[in-house]
Simulated assay, not measured.
Amino acid sequence: MIKSFGLPNSQVGFVTAIPPVAGLIGMIALSRHSDHVGERFYYAAMTFVIAAAGFAIAAFSTSPVWIIIGFMVANVGVYGTQAVFWTIPQSYMSRQSAPGAIGLVSTIGSIGGATIPIVIGRAKDASGSFTIGFLVVTGVLLVAATLVLIARTPTRERMSSRTAINRTKTPAPRRAAQEDTRSELVIDFERYVPTVLSSLVAKLRANANAFFPQAYGVSLAEWRVLSFLREHEPASAYDIWTNAQLDKAVVSRETTSLKKKGLIELTPVRGSARNRTEIRLTSQGVALLDRSLDEILRRHSNLTAGLDARALESFFRVVAHIEHRIPHMADQTSKAVPAHAPVKRIVKRRPPTGA
């Protein structure tokens, strides 16, 4: 089609490369924004609509410039679809159903990829132009966008209810087979709150431990000491480890390191019975905290992207409730397993007794 514009061969390749470049830029922008807001279905549908709009522009245009613009728009949608759409099966389906669903979608996509060029070519031969073929592609893309929006039902809720139903089902009676099949309850560590929180804390700590030394030349624990002093100086080492929830040895080590770096100063308190020392920030320490404030807020904003103020307040209430309940974890409670308990059923097959 591009050759029909009358361009020399040296320019055909250059013009042909323009739409894919636009598609790559659009793919990066769409995928980043989708990650930022935490939305998949609407963005997947939007990419289909963008691709349909591009083919529609190319279908009704006679100017080579507008046809190339149409191809650029279409490529933005097509490339963006690849980046956003494939996150849906992995994020909203169970581990058991996701591989089959991905395989089915891939098969349908391969069939479409082989069929659409034939349809466009046959339409071109019959009508003498690409208009009908492009309109067929436009219609298929709009149907795909509609199906994605229809599928945007509370998938996770359906999965949760289905899982709850499966947990309450009575195990099927054993068949008269040679092997012993039993359904057993085990802990689902992906939903066991202590494990989930411990894993989350470990990931956050690892990320921060990699960030602070590189960005500001201090460790995470050193930055926490500096932040505590910013609000409570002058303070003693005892004040820091009791109120900042840091280990006594950690505070001793980090204050020594911070003093060597010139970020804090230690002043003995005259007349103190235990040789008490007051710790204050130096001007360099204050400057470091001022310099890091915007970056810390940006990291927090990136972490909580997609959550509004109400969701964050709910999160903090949940955290406060869990903290309050920690001393009660050993309390004696009913033996009945609640519906939301972090358990799952597994099937164990054992050889027959005496085999």
Rank of each mutant, 00 (worst) to 15 (best):
A305N: 10
Y79V: 10
E39G: 01
A83F: 03
H340L: 11
T107E: 03
V250D: 02
T282E: 11
Q82P: 06
P342A: 07
P89T: 04
A237D: 09
L147Q: 10
P327M: 05
I88F: 04
V218N: 00
V136S: 04
S94V: 10
P234G: 00
Q90D: 07
Y238P: 03
T170A: 10
R174I: 10
N75G: 04
F14R: 12
H232Y: 13
Y216L: 10
T87Y: 06
Q178P: 07
V343I: 15
G100L: 14
Q96V: 13
V250M: 07
T333D: 10
D239W: 00
A176G: 15
R205Q: 15
F85V: 09
S227V: 05
R253K: 05
V136K: 10
G26Q: 01
P352S: 15
N166Y: 11
V148I: 11
P194E: 05
V148Q: 00
M159W: 13
A320Y: 09
R299G: 13
M1Q: 11
I120L: 09
P338I: 14
L141V: 02
R298L: 05
A29M: 12
H300S: 15
G100F: 14
L141S: 09
M72K: 00
T81F: 08
M27Q: 15
A29L: 14
I28K: 10
L104Q: 14
A330E: 12
K169V: 07
R230M: 00
R230N: 08
L200R: 11
A336P: 07
G139F: 01
R291C: 02
W223V: 05
Q245Y: 08
K169A: 15
V137D: 04
L258C: 04
Y192H: 05
D125Y: 07
L263G: 00
I50S: 04
L229P: 00
S63G: 02
S272R: 07
G271T: 02
R291N: 15
K261L: 09
M27D: 02
R182Y: 00
D331T: 11
A339F: 12
M93N: 11
A29T: 11
Q245H: 04
D247H: 09
I111K: 01
L200E: 13
G26D: 00
V251A: 01
